[in-house]
Design a protein around this nucleic acid. Structure first.
Lengths: 125, 125
DNA sequence: GAGCGTAATATACTCCAGGGAATAACCCTT
DNA sequence: AAGGGTTATTCCCTGGAGTATATTACGCTC
């Protein structure tokens, strides 16, 4: 009869706890799901243009995100070269690789946290 | 030298882990910070209009949020009456009070989680 | 040095979520 | 029965975030 059950068998999970986390640096968001996905695609393609395309993101947006990350990290996560062989490109630095790993681990912990909280909600606090 | 330090003294916290959580029900978001704040204001003022005003939110938006919460909860969290003394009003039900308490507890846990993760990030995973 | 594909940057445009405004319904008070 | 303040609902419209478009710069290849 009650909207938020005090105690229930939890045969079915009525509610789930969802959420987002991100890492903030000096100028706001530093790492988030979108940014890390972009880093992964840059690593895969070696090009900001193609990475953006694969994520259905405008080049402009992708470039802004890369700039923001590079500014806030102690060392660049992505190094882009203009002109030259193939017209240029972008490579993920070692720091970039560590940034991906860090965020993925963080996100995995967050997932566990949410699952735990979801159980709490459905079983009644 | 590295953007994401592997190990650092953490004399200053360079990064903080931020985030949002919410409770999802059948039709998407059920409880979030904004919604719970609205519930608290409705309890305080006994009026959707004044609650919305105090949050600088349009009545339309507030009403939609209340509708959404009432639909998704087993029992209404807010009961509104039209016409009558004072033109009407809205009261928070007992289930509504429990919803506030539930989310506040959830959010407190989340805060602890973020603080822990922030320490992890700044000290190096 | 012409051509290529990319990075970098500025400008113009589109689209739609959100809010404002307007209206109706409601029912107690006087 | 008129008034008042609230809930409930529809319609219209704007702001601005994001995208598309356009332009320039770059440097290796051939």
């Amino acid at each position: 009869m009650s909207g938020i059950p005090a105690k229930r068998p939890s045969l079915e999970a009525r509610y789930t706890v969802e959420g987002h986390i991100w890492v903030e640096g000096a100028e706001g968001t530093f790492l988030g799901v979108g940014r890390v996905l972009l880093l992964e695609k840059i690593k895969e393609y070696g090009s900001i243009t193609r990475a953006a395309g694969s994520l259905e993101m405008s080049y402009r947006k992708a470039w802004e995100l890369v700039e923001s990350m590079n500014r806030q990290a102690g060392a660049p996560l992505v190094v882009a070269t203009t002109g030259g062989k193939g017209g240029g490109g972008a490579v993920l630095t070692e720091a970039g690789g560590r940034a991906i790993k860090l965020f993925r681990e963080l996100d995995a912990e967050f997932r566990k946290f949410r699952e735990k909280m979801s159980r709490t909600v459905n079983n009644g606090a």
